[in-house]
C-alpha cells in the first residue's frame, strides 16, 4: 500500500524559508498573501497490507527519522 506523510513546522517555530517565499510571491505581484509555511511531503510504498500494522510502522518511522518532533508535526495518510 501507499502512504502519504506530511511534515510541517510546529506553530511558533520560525520558518525563514516560508518568509522568503512569501516575499518572492509579493514581488511577483501576488497580493493578499498573509503567510507561507514550508513543509515536506513523502510517499512511501509499503509491502504491508494490514492498515493498522502499517499505520503503527509509519508512526514509528516518523518518530525515529522522518520528522524531528522537537520542531515538526507529522500527518500520516494511507491510500
Amino acid at each position: 500500500m501507499k502512504a502519504k506523510i506530511k511534515v510541517t513546522l510546529k506553530n511558533g517555530v520560525l520558518d525563514p524559508q516560508g518568509k522568503a517565499i512569501e516575499g518572492a510571491l509579493g514581488s511577483l505581484g501576488f497580493g493578499g498573501v498573509n503567510g507561507v509555511r514550508q513543509g515536506k511531503y513523502f510517499e512511501i510504498e509499503l509491502a504491508e497490507t494490514d492498515n493498522v500494522k502499517a499505520e503503527a510502522t509509519l508512526k514509528s518511522m516518523c518518530e525515529k527519522l522522518i520528522a524531528n518532533t522537537v520542531i515538526e508535526n507529522y500527518e500520516i495518510e494511507l491510500a
Binding site: 520560525l14 525563514p16 522568503a20 524531528n68 522537537v70
Partner: peptide
C-alpha cells in the same frame, strides 16, 4: 543532537 545526545535542534540560519 539528532541522535538525542543533546537537547534541541539546529535550524536554518534566521537570515537564510
Amino acid at each position: 543532537t539528532e541522535a538525542g545526545l543533546l537537547p534541541g535542534v539546529l535550524m536554518r540560519n534566521a537570515d537564510l
